[in-house]
Design a protein around this nucleic acid. Structure first.
Lengths: 153, 153
DNA sequence: TCTTGACTTAGAGCGCACTCTAGATTCTAG
DNA sequence: CTAGAATCTAGAGTGCGCTCTAAGTCAAGA
């Protein structure tokens, strides 16, 4: 059985009984995002499946939701916009048959990330150059001419 | 003589005579940022030196400003906040003697970029895995079980 | 049962980095 | 000299991705 060590809840339970899944606070702790953000993701259509509810209406996050949140945070940290994630989620919710579209969204994001990595590496050379220059000048006791303001004669 | 090919202006001229430097539109074209952004950078204290002005008050960008804008856009694309850039610019404007502080700002930014690159690479593995899975399933004509919504029995 | 803390919703607020506007002034080609 | 394009300033507006609030409901231990 697949059980959360903290809450002792069965993450795979098929129904929304009172003891199934974990609370939103626990889901937040497990995924590293705030409860506010979890609710925001849900109401803005960024969850392929929404957490089950107890009879009182409180959310119970299970394996599917927790795994998606994990994926979702990775897509976000790869720079994928909430709008694109919504589009991806819409495809998933539409069910089988649009896998090529989903693939295309992911591949497009990968291309953006690769481009960004290349850009970062290029711009890093610049900052490394400046760091190197500062270090050399500091060894000599002077940093003139890097970005000092020229004095009027 | 250092001359802009487009405007034919002397970028090194020491005084703010009417024909020295380039207009803000030309500076924008050369640096790839908008004229709005150039004015914003200036008034929010992100320019170590401000462009000279004609007698009528219009800006004339010269080599120093154009080079800084170039550096500044790279720092921005490395994710350095405008606040940190302002701090760096303040140090530069304060003149020689704080090179260690400047160096520290740049090194801290480099550390953040290196961490971000590592994170991007890690998260990219996830997206690559999903892309790979989708491709395989598409070859088989099915993408069930990646992020499909389970049907109720 | 009671109490305390966690949870609910809809909607407002925030921080960042621009981006645009209005209305006046300046520049430049003819 | 003149017309039209470019520029000026201070300040307002925008889009993104959260983040927080208010006013109430629910859950769980003593």
């Amino acid at each position: 059985m697949n059980v959360d060590r903290q809450s002792g809840q069965d993450l795979d339970a098929p129904t929304a009984g009172p003891g199934d899944g974990v609370s939103i606070a626990e889901a937040a702790r497990l995924s590293g995002v705030s409860v506010h953000t979890l609710r925001y993701y849900e109401r803005s259509g960024m969850m392929p499946t929404t957490p089950a509810r107890t009879s009182g209406g409180t959310r119970r996050y299970r394996k599917a939701e927790l795994e998606w949140i994990h994926t979702c945070t990775k897509l976000r940290s790869l720079g994928m916009s909430t709008d694109l994630i919504r589009r991806y989620v819409d495809l998933v919710r539409a069910g089988p048959g649009n896998e090529a579209d989903r693939l295309h969204l992911l591949e497009a994001q990968r291309e953006r990330v690769l481009a960004q990595q290349a850009q970062l590496s290029m711009d890093l050379e610049m900052i490394n150059g400046k760091i190197q220059t500062y270090r050399e000048r500091l060894e000599q006791g002077s940093a003139d001419g890097i970005w000092s303001v020229p004095r009027e004669p």
